[in-house]
């Protein structure tokens, strides 16, 4: 008989939903495809020596002049779409995960601070959160990119500014409950420094809802980045994310060459849906109100 640890219980509860497990497996596969793209992709889509413009806009399944099969077709530059998607996933995932993590750190810290310190600090932070959340994400991101110009760094900054408020609101909500518990009182009685109470005692106990928000925010960030890149305001041409690949295919779609936009879109969709399915189950498992 294995000893039941909180982690094992968490795993078995998560695995209770088959859909969520499928979501998790898909997310792992997508992440591996992105990570190992240089090893797995049939072609390096950025290496101009490997491209031949004569292979441009070939339909899925066509063969190149050198005999390579383009399973998902090629784009206007003669790039293999399958390789392009794997490399595009790298950009999309790193921008999405990266911005969600940074926003999570910034937002959660501010939310904890608001709950722990209270007073005018709390009022100021929460008013800012309210103001931020009353405007749609796409609008705020557009505004920031209009001021700063495009680029991977600026897109990430825009995503962080768009996302931090949700973490802050969630962290504050959780912290307001937790800070009245005895263990915080005990820590304060031990005269531990405030930052230690805040980050070593309060934060770990506020993690479950933050993890749920974080998962969903990664999916939101990937979608938003793709949208911005599609509009031509996101990542530069030299670092094509899935959104930019889709945008590149837009002009060829009217002539029936659907695959340049279609397959990157499917990759995007599968990634987002898989993350959301995982997030749904995480919410059910980690929600303290539903726990027995």
């Amino acid at each position: 008989m294995r000893e039941e640890t909180p982690f094992r219980r968490f795993v078995s509860e998560f695995a209770a939903s088959k859909v969520a497990v499928i979501g998790f497996v898909v997310v792992v596969i997508v992440a591996l495809l992105a990570l190992l793209a240089p090893l797995l992709a049939p072609q390096n889509p950025y290496d101009l020596a490997q491209l031949d413009i004569m292979d441009g806009r070939l339909a899925p399944g066509a063969k190149s002049l050198t005999g390579m099969v383009f399973w998902l077709g090629t784009d206007d530059q003669g790039r293999d779409m399958l390789s392009g998607i794997m490399y595009g996933l790298r950009i999309s995932l790193s921008v999405g995960v990266g911005s969600a993590v940074i926003a999570g750190v910034v937002g959660s810290s501010l939310g904890l601070l608001a709950a722990y310190v209270g007073g005018w600090v709390e009022t100021a932070i929460m008013r800012l959160v309210d103001l931020q959340l009353s405007f749609p994400a796409i609008l705020v991101a557009l505004m920031i990119l209009a001021f700063l110009g495009k680029g991977v760094g600026n897109v990430m900054l825009a995503l962080v500014i768009v996302e931090w408020a949700r973490y802050a609101r969630t962290a504050r909500g959780a912290a307001l409950v937790e800070r009245r518990r005895e263990y915080i009182e005990a820590a304060e009685c031990l005269a531990l420094p405030q930052w230690r109470v805040l980050f070593r005692h309060l934060l770990p106990n506020c993690m479950p809802p933050l993890i749920v928000i974080g998962t969903i925010q990664v999916a939101r960030a990937i979608t938003l980045e793709a949208t911005l890149s599609f509009l031509g305001l996101g990542v530069p041409i030299t670092e094509p994310s899935l959104g930019l690949l889709i945008a590149n295919g837009y002009q060829y779609m009217l002539s029936g060459k659907y695959w340049i936009s279609f397959y990157p879109g499917i990759a995007l969709l599968v990634t987002i849906v898989a993350i959301n399915l995982m997030g749904d189950q995480l919410r059910d498992v980690l929600n303290p109100r539903l726990q027995r």
Binding site: T227, F230, L254, G265
Partner: peptide, 19 residues
């Protein structure tokens, strides 16, 4: 909720306008 708006738009064009 999950479908990216812009991609759905493209697919609508592809099916109902092009095909």
């Amino acid at each position: 909720f999950s479908l990216p708006t812009f991609w759905v738009g493209l697919m609508l064009i592809m099916v109902f306008a092009v095909q």
